[in-house]
Design a protein around this nucleic acid. Structure first.
Lengths: 167, 167
DNA sequence: AACTAGATGATAATTATTATCATCTAGGTT
DNA sequence: AACCTAGATGATAATAATTATCATCTAGTT
């Protein structure tokens, strides 16, 4: 089978392993291992809901009533920076619109957020044959390729990584 | 070639065709053909930048100094509703995070925004062999499959389409 | 135990988007 | 051509997510 829903049953052991390695990965990333960070990664690893910051905040507050929402936002971005988490959609500084309604996909520069259209006929063909996925009825799809454009690549080489707004 | 950047040169004739059909498509969608809508679709079709609402607002204001930003936002969403435009990222009500850092993709219910992970090994293999795309150096990628979950599908059948927040 | 770079909490500020509502108009009818 | 009305617009307020600021605190080192 080409496309398949990930078996949620596997998440338990996966989360345990990730958590056991977390402290070391923080150190490797130059980050302090704080109770807040541990609590946040724990909640994130235990969730299968791809939660928003506020949902994680709510969950973490049960054990850490004094944690700040700002800390949750900051920590989630930090975790993404060191590769310990991933933002499902990275373009969250504002909605972007496209007048091209023919099937196509996008390359996005992770730094300047420039977007260009791409065609992947084989992917479109693969997806055309997939009208359902478990309990989901497929409507359409869009591949987002994360990239660094040449201009930003050379800038990055010079300047020391300036954090991008909104992430 | 599997992946290729869309040739921007083709956009001129495409935009002209889309614009010529726009009035009819509005009527078909039950929408009035207003000068504001014409101005907005024109700007969108002429742009290759996948612009934000505020950029479209700025461009449209040259010819329509009295247009409101709210109209631009509303119109863009309306155009998406009737299939005359597309939002590059549809998840714009808040960032969603994922603790699973292994390569995988997502199915999203366009109504309730539930997300589930999917595996598409063939796509991952296809992308693994692609380290550059024109002026872009590939970092990673994520396929977002838009779908309707069974629960929302049956709801939609009953209730008359309630507009989703934020779109 | 002392030190300090970096982390946190509290809160203000910013920004994108949506809601509200009075007014206006596209597109049909008379 | 004047008239009607559902729907569209403009102006502005409200909402909500995220980021900035800054005083305080603490993880990890000395």
């Amino acid at each position: 089978m080409e496309l398949q829903l990930v078996n949620e049953g596997r998440r338990g052991p996966y989360a345990a392993k990730r958590l056991s390695e977390f402290a070391e990965r923080c150190r490797r990333g130059g980050l302090a291992v704080t109770p807040q960070r541990l609590a946040i990664i724990k909640v994130l690893l235990d969730s299968d809901e791809h939660p928003r910051a506020d949902a994680i905040f709510t969950a973490v507050r049960i054990q850490h009533p004094h944690i700040s929402l700002a800390t949750v936002h900051r920590t989630l971005e930090t975790l993404c920076d060191i590769g310990e988490a991933r933002k499902v959609t990275m373009l969250h500084d504002g909605a972007r619109y496209d007048g091209n309604t023919t099937p196509h996909h996008h390359v996005v520069c992770v730094r300047c957020r420039r977007i260009r259209d791409i065609e992947i006929l084989r992917l479109d063909r693969l997806l055309a044959g997939q009208s359902a996925l478990g309990e989901f009825t497929v409507i359409g799809s869009s591949l987002e390729i994360h990239a660094l454009c040449d201009e930003c690549g050379s800038k990055r080489a010079k300047t020391n990584r300036t954090k991008q707004p909104r992430g």
